[in-house]
Amino acid sequence: MSDKITKTDEEWRSQLSREEYVVCREQGTERAFTGRYWDEKKSGTYHCNGCGEALFASDTKYDSGSGWPSFYQPINEASVEENRDTSHAMVRVEVHCAKCDTHLGHVFEDGPEPTGLRYCINSLSLKLEED
């Protein structure tokens, strides 16, 4: 992805709330069933809270029962990047925004067709732009 965004820690802290900063910049997570989008049904596009990059379309969102917004694919494969995450005594695949490195959540291989993937994303990492 071109036009990579880099900001100082101070710039991120001034842009994000304390809770957003913990999730987006420190790879935190919100508690299940507490985020503003876990049960959202409105049509639109979910953008990165850090840089505004379009990440997920509402028509790929589904109820995974996990308590976090879940999508079966990003709008563009190049808009998210993956890293191996071995925190919390688990091996998972972390996903972050390719443009600004905002931590989004994790991707699992237990999602619905057509991809079989579940992008389990923190609401604090997203902003919904309604259609």
Rank of each mutant, 00 (worst) to 15 (best):
M90D: 02
Y21I: 11
S2M: 11
S125W: 03
A54I: 03
A32N: 11
H96N: 13
L104V: 03
S17D: 12
Q73E: 10
G65S: 14
N76L: 06
L117P: 07
G52L: 06
S123A: 03
G111R: 01
G67Q: 08
F33Y: 13
G67I: 11
V107K: 00
T115W: 05
A57L: 12
T115M: 09
K42C: 00
F108S: 12
Y46L: 06
W38P: 06
R31W: 15
G52W: 03
E109A: 14
V23C: 11
E129P: 00
R18E: 15
T115L: 11
W12D: 14
S43D: 13
L126D: 10
V95H: 01
M1Q: 14
S70W: 05
G28P: 01
G52I: 03
V95Y: 07
V107P: 00
I75N: 13
A32C: 11
C51A: 13
W38R: 06
K42A: 14
S2V: 06
R25H: 14
E30I: 08
L128Q: 08
S14H: 09
L55H: 04
Y21Q: 13
E130W: 01
A89C: 09
E109G: 10
H88S: 12
Y21S: 15
G105N: 06
H96W: 06
L55G: 06
Y21M: 13
S43R: 15
N122A: 05
E40Y: 00
V107T: 01
E82R: 15
Q27W: 08
M1L: 13
Q27P: 07
W38V: 04
K41R: 03
E30K: 07
V93T: 15
C120N: 15
S2I: 04
R31Y: 12
S17K: 13
E77P: 11
I121F: 00
D9I: 07
C24F: 02
D110R: 12
A78M: 03
E10Q: 15
S43Y: 01
E40I: 00
V80Q: 04
M1H: 12
G28K: 04
C97A: 05
I121Y: 00
L124Y: 01
Y72C: 07
T8H: 07
G52P: 01
F56V: 02
K61W: 03
L117Y: 05
V93P: 01
V23S: 09
T8N: 13
E19F: 02
E26M: 14
F71G: 12
A89V: 08
N122Q: 04
S87E: 14
V93I: 12
E40F: 00
V91C: 08
I121Q: 00
P69Q: 04
L16H: 09
V91S: 07
V22F: 09
S64K: 08
R84C: 09
A32Y: 11
N49A: 10
A54N: 05
T45N: 04
Y62H: 07
V93D: 06
P74I: 10
V93L: 15
R31I: 04
E20W: 08
H47D: 07
E130M: 08
G111C: 05
E20A: 15
C120R: 10
Y62E: 03
N76E: 12
T86I: 13
